Lab assay of single mutants.
Amino acid sequence: MTYKLILNGKTLKGETTTEAVDAATAEKVFKQYANDNGVDGEWTYDDATKAFTVTE
């Protein structure tokens, strides 16, 4: 299944996707991606759209 990450960081904005077996796996991938790019903020998840959002 495809999951999307929407980044609303102070220095990094954009979107990326990942293929994962479930939302928990996608969340781990996205949190590592955000951490690697220096984005740390409030996380939300919308199951209807399979989209995670992180806002700094």
Rank of each mutant, 00 (worst) to 15 (best):
T55M: 07
E42D: 12
K13W: 11
N8I: 14
D22Q: 03
G41W: 06
A48H: 11
E19W: 15
K4M: 08
G38M: 07
G9V: 10
K28S: 10
D36F: 08
T44W: 07
T2K: 10
T44R: 08
N8V: 13
V39W: 14
F52L: 01
K4F: 10
G41R: 01
T25N: 08
T25I: 07
N37Q: 14
D46L: 03
G38P: 01
E56I: 10
D22C: 05
A20L: 02
D22S: 07
A20D: 03
K50W: 05
Y33N: 02
G9H: 06
G14N: 08
T55L: 06
K10L: 15
E15H: 08
V39K: 02
A34I: 06
L5F: 05
A26P: 00
T49Q: 12
I6Y: 13
G38F: 07
Y33K: 02
F30Y: 01
A51C: 15
K10D: 08
A20M: 03
F52M: 01
E19N: 13
E42P: 04
G9Y: 07
A51H: 06
T44P: 00
E15P: 04
N37Y: 12
T44F: 10
K50S: 05
F30Q: 00
T17G: 04
A20E: 04
G41P: 01
W43L: 03
N8S: 07
L5D: 03
K50L: 10
D36P: 01
V54M: 05
T25M: 11
T25E: 14
D22E: 04
T18E: 04
W43T: 01
E15V: 13
T2R: 09
K4H: 11
N35H: 15
A24C: 11
T44V: 10
T55C: 07
A23C: 10
T16H: 14
K28I: 12
K28R: 12
K13Q: 12
K10F: 14
E27S: 06
K50N: 08
Q32A: 12
V29L: 11
K13E: 06
T18C: 15
G41C: 02
A23T: 09
A20R: 02
Y3D: 03
G14E: 10
L12I: 13
K4N: 05
D46T: 04
D36S: 10
A26C: 02
T25D: 09
A24S: 10
T44H: 11
E15G: 06
T44Q: 09
E42Q: 11
E27I: 08
T11L: 13
D47W: 08
G41N: 01
A26N: 00
T53Y: 09
A24E: 11
T16F: 15
E56K: 04
N35F: 15
Y33M: 05
A48Y: 11
G9T: 15
F30V: 01
Y33V: 05
A48T: 12
Q32R: 10
T49R: 09
D36G: 05
T16Y: 15
A20T: 05
T49V: 07
T25Q: 13
V29N: 06
A51G: 04
D46N: 09
T25S: 13
I6R: 04
D47T: 09
K4R: 11
K50E: 03
A34Q: 01
Y33A: 03
Y45A: 00
T55Q: 06
A26V: 02
G41K: 01
A20K: 02
K13M: 08
Y3E: 02
W43P: 00
A48W: 08
T2G: 04
K10V: 14
E19G: 05
Y45L: 02
M1S: 14
E19A: 08
A24L: 11
A51W: 06
A26Y: 00
G14A: 12
G14F: 14
L12T: 10
V21N: 11
T2E: 09
T2A: 06
V29E: 07
Y33F: 12
V54T: 02
T17A: 07
G38E: 06
A51F: 06
N37H: 15
T17P: 02
T16N: 05
D40P: 04
G14V: 14
L7C: 08
L7S: 03
G41V: 02
W43C: 02
G38S: 06
G41E: 01
T18M: 11
E42S: 11
K50V: 03
A23S: 09
A34K: 00
T44S: 13
T55W: 09
E42W: 13
T49W: 05
V29W: 14
K4D: 03
A23Y: 13
T16L: 15
K50F: 08
V29R: 08
V29Q: 08
A24G: 08
Y3V: 02
F30S: 00
K31P: 01
G14R: 10
A24H: 09
D36V: 09
T25G: 08
Y45E: 00
D22I: 03
G14I: 15
W43S: 00
D36C: 08
V29A: 08
G9Q: 04
A24T: 10
E42K: 11
T16S: 08
A48E: 13
D40Y: 15
E15K: 05
T17K: 07
V39S: 03
N37S: 09
V54A: 03
K4I: 13
D47F: 09
T17C: 10
A20H: 03
W43R: 00
N8H: 10
K4W: 10
L12S: 08
K50C: 06
Y3G: 03
W43M: 04
D36M: 11
N35K: 15
D46P: 00
V29C: 09
A26D: 01
N37M: 15
D46I: 04
T53D: 02
K10N: 12
K31G: 03
T55H: 07
G14W: 15
M1Q: 14
D22K: 03
T2Q: 09
N37P: 01
V39C: 04
L12N: 08
L7F: 11
G9N: 05
Y33G: 00
L7H: 03
A34Y: 03
Q32K: 13
D46Q: 04
V29D: 04
E15T: 13
T53C: 08
Q32W: 05
